[in-house]
């Protein structure tokens, strides 16, 4: 147990009267007061001194009548409130709780729906993009198809050569607009560092002229490639060349070759 004298001398009782101790400290002082009459007496004396001191600052005394007038005008209304409205209070609280629960439920549903809505919207956007891509691809394919079906186009099949007997290709040549389409679907994928190079050939004497290289062969889906061809080609050949192409065809890498029929 605490030394009572020391407890009193600590100054805690003066702060207790000032009203600025923690709730726990207040309870402790209260207990000490009831256990030890000398502590209670001390608190009362401190309070008395403070009462006198603070009262001395008052400009005068205000009569209780002021308060009484207020009480008389308010009392009759204030007191019945407590008993009369009890069930109203309880049902009010019950209604509030139900309302709150309802609001929480509604809010949760809203959040869930919003999530679903966002997901659906995202899926829609992805589908739209896919649809546009397909549409574009379809238009391109249609254009290509129109181009090779044109009455001005002649078809030259290119057969596999030597070790590459399994390879084949086709050239669609539109002499009107000097363009050719290569259908390379019968060619194998190119190894790294190699590309297909297209040659226009005249036969007598045998003179190859490069029409260009297919740089994106492996990535292309329909393997249809368009080239300009302003030459009077008598044959077309495709060789495998190092990336960037060669000046003249590497003959042992000649995969396919086809002669243009003068009378298709």
């Amino acid at each position: 147990m605490k030394d009572i004298k020391e407890y009193i001398e600590s100054g805690i009782l003066e702060l207790y009267v000032a009203g600025k101790l923690s709730e726990q400290e207040n309870q402790e002082v209260h207990e000490m007061m009831y256990e030890h009459p000398e502590i209670k007496k001390e608190v009362e004396e401190i309070e008395k001194a403070i009462l006198l001191l603070t009262a001395s600052v008052a400009p005068g005394t205000v009569s209780f009548n002021n308060i009484l007038n207020h009480l008389n005008s308010n009392d009759k209304r204030v007191i019945p409130l407590k008993t009369r409205y009890n069930w109203v209070t309880y049902t009010g609280w019950a209604a509030s709780i139900l309302l709150a629960a309802g609001l929480v439920y509604n809010y949760q549903s809203k959040v869930d729906l919003q999530g679903e809505l966002e997901l659906t919207e995202r899926e829609n956007r992805i589908l739209e993009i896919k649809f546009e891509d397909s549409q574009e691809a379809l238009v391109q394919t249609q254009n290509t198809l129109d181009a090779i079906r044109s009455k001005d186009v002649i078809t030259i099949p290119l057969g596999g050569q030597g070790n590459f007997a399994d390879s084949y290709a086709k050239v669609y040549w539109n002499k009107e607009d000097n363009s050719i389409y290569i259908d390379g679907s019968g060619l194998p994928e190119t190894p790294t560092g190699k590309v297909w190079q297209i040659w226009s050939l005249t036969l007598n004497p045998l003179t190859p002229t490069s029409l260009g290289t297919i740089d994106s062969f492996n990535d292309d889906e329909d393997k249809l490639f368009k080239f300009e061809n302003e030459y009077s080609s008598e044959a077309f050949g495709i060789t495998l060349e190092p990336t960037g192409g060669s000046e003249s065809p590497t003959m042992d890498q000649l995969h396919t070759l086809g002669v243009v029929n003068s009378n298709p």
Binding site: T54, P59, I67, L68
Partner: peptide
């Protein structure tokens, strides 16, 4: 009882408020 308490403390409370 309220009136008794008021008489005991109102001057002091008045002083504190006034200050």
């Amino acid at each position: 009882a309220f009136e008794k308490l008021y008489e005991m403390y109102s001057d002091s409370i008045y002083g504190v408020i006034m200050n």
